[in-house]
Amino acid sequence: MANEEEARLIADARRGDGRALALLVAAHQQAVRGFLRRFAGHWADADDLAQEAFVTAWRKLDRFEGRSSFRVWVCGIGYRIARDARRAHRRAQARDYAWLEEGDSEEGGAPLEDRIAVARAMSQLPDDQRAAVALCLGEGFSHAEAAAILDAPLGTVKSHVLRGRERLLKILDATP
């Protein structure tokens, strides 16, 4: 989506235009849901969190200053919601990998077994490393964008991505 079009949709959504909000959601849902699915693990919860993130973004749209892209801003909201929900519940959540089977098993050139193995390995990473890996290696955000989403220094994010990747590789090496 072009920047001008996005700015126009945001302005329209601020005025209460539901269609503009729907178009913004449609344009960015894949990145926000993808990130939260990789971060939260449980796909149904992750989609619920993503919906909450978009509704919160719509409610706080007046506070969006445009210093980052809309996508980065909503991902940041989603991350904070997911992190707070995790802290609040503090319960062992059953992790579900059903979302991995949604698409074609050869989609993206990766066999389903590898995607499940990586998802399982992701669940063993600490929260901040998993979030950084999900954003930068999973959803293609730049390190700077991930730093804005996670509200963390750029160097810390780079280090999380590097260490997370190394740990994933170690786990994957041990998986046949």
Binding site: G18, L21, A22, V25, A26, Q29, Q30, A31, R33, G34, F35, R37, R38, D47, A50, Q51, E52, F54, V55, W58, R59, W99, L100, E102, G103, E107, G108, G109, A110, D114, R115, A117, V118, V133, L137, G138, E139, G140, R165, L168, L169, L172
Partner: peptide, 26 residues
Amino acid sequence: RLLAALSAPAAPAKDMHFALEVMRRA
């Protein structure tokens, strides 16, 4: 294997049901 698995999309590119659900909640 890792890069291929991570770069596979984790959510569908288009999902009107999701957008409608967000609208309903909003």
